[in-house]
Design a protein around this nucleic acid. Structure first.
Lengths: 257, 257
DNA sequence: CGGTACATTGAAGGGGCTCAATCCACGTGG
DNA sequence: CCACGTGGATTGAGCCCCTTCAATGTACCG
């Protein structure tokens, strides 16, 4: 089944997760909102498992994930796989690889997802006309880079228990930011095998670690349903600081429009 | 001893490592070179060990490393430390943390270093007037983010031997790009302890791993002097692809000026 | 000459991996 | 309606890579 190309009947709706994300960084003017809405980007449905970006191919633009979830990963020659990050609605797909001759990583849909496509000429024209959006985009890219940085700290210098705890808390915070998590619970989009590939652990050990967290009364996990029982203790265990997911301060340096 | 503030008597010279780096992405016009040279940024000498950026503090701009070397790292509560990346001349200091309320990581000079300071208003004004430079900067940030990404793959899914091999090759490539390495040799700017903090290994094991690489005839290490004996075998061992350090392709999408 | 920083090497222990079996939920077709 | 296949979760046993702890070596410097 070929993925049907949806006509962008309602571009305002389609680009909305991105607009919402950007407006969390600076207060967007009406003109900027109009410029974003005017992008007229087509959206495309991607079935579960489909590769949205394939490592080694080249792309003349960036994708934005509008609905669903995806993972960015690299498959190594020895059969192992490292998941770099989880892509959630509003996130760009293609950074930082999009400017390279060949994509560095593969991005695959975790479940049925919707993505839109912004060609480079369109993107650069937008940024040239709306310099404040350009600065905001720097912030978004910074945020993604910071998440990979925290991820590196996780994998490099934390125990399995600390890693999983940190992972669960980061996911809670990110999902809350886009309204897909309650105060202490959410739906886990990854299998235990993928959690292992993200955290540099084997699947059996992910399972054992989750069991330990459960036995310690820190989390409840039933299938995909995750409940954080004791956020304080979990955050202490994981040395979790949500600063890197938080607010930016460039608004002070930009003209109001 | 307070760090002496140098008068920017020769800004063209001072900003040169950055200009050289940017001109590796796109061919800079005379106007763009002049705009960069006109930045009039003061440079400052940082003695070995000095913190250039301290985690938790806030900064109203970015630094550019002009000479020397530095590490970006996070010190964890449990006393451990993770080095995120090595900062070399021409690299920005402050990305991705610079847009946050508080710096996420600490950046410390490895040896006597020279940095320049670009306040946000100056930077944003430059980018607004020179949109091609803005796009080029996106590429530079992409490159830094990609290096952290590769670093994550290294630490998450490779053995100690593969990690160290990959690390040595990445360093060779990066130092060559700025003319600080010969075809197969360079001066190692990090101690074995710091290599361990970068690769998620203990110092004794870094030592043993280096010895193994030496015994296998892949590298020669004598103090700070590193010679890659067998690049092919080392690259095969490390699964090293230099693509992420390589060329960009945004030039096609930008007007020549 | 003593102190500091870094490199080197050994011994012992543990955290996480590998390999393997089992279980369960679910969908699908006979 | 049940047999079967499949994807994922769960659990166990054994082992190995890497850590921790510790001692020693060595160059450099005040």
């Amino acid at each position: 089944m070929a993925s049907p190309l949806q006509t962008a009947a309602d571009p305002q709706h389609l680009i909305e997760p991105l607009t919402q994300k950007l407006s969390g960084v600076i207060a967007l003017t009406a003109e900027e909102r109009a410029a974003l809405a005017g992008l007229q980007v087509p959206s495309r449905r991607m079935p579960r498992g489909r590769e949205i970006v394939s490592a080694g191919r080249k792309y003349d633009g960036v994708f934005v994930l509008l609905d669903g979830a995806a993972i960015r990963y690299r498959a190594l020659r020895n059969g192992r796989r490292q998941v770099l990050n989880l892509v959630l609605p509003g996130d760009f797909i293609g950074f930082p690889a999009c400017f390279y001759e060949a994509a560095l990583y593969t991005v695959a849909a975790l479940n049925d997802a919707v993505v839109s496509w912004i060609p480079f000429p369109t993107l650069f024209a937008l940024l040239q006309r709306q310099p404040r959006l350009s600065a905001t985009l720097f912030c978004c890219f910074s945020s993604e880079a910071a998440m990979v940085g925290e991820h590196l700290i996780d994998v490099g210098r934390r125990s399995a228990l600390e890693r999983v705890a940190h992972f669960l808390l980061e996911l809670l915070t990110r999902l809350q930011a886009i309204g897909q998590a309650a105060e202490r619970s959410y739906r886990m989009p990854l299998t235990q095998e993928l959690i292992g590939d993200a955290l540099g652990l084997s699947m059996p050990h992910v399972n054992r670690t989750l069991r330990q967290l459960r036995e310690d009364g820190l989390v409840i996990i039933d299938g995909q349903h995750v409940v954080i029982e004791d956020i304080e203790s979990l955050a202490a265990l994981a040395d979790f600081e949500r600063g890197y997911l938080g607010r930016f301060r460039i608004a002070d340096f930009l003209d109001p429009g």
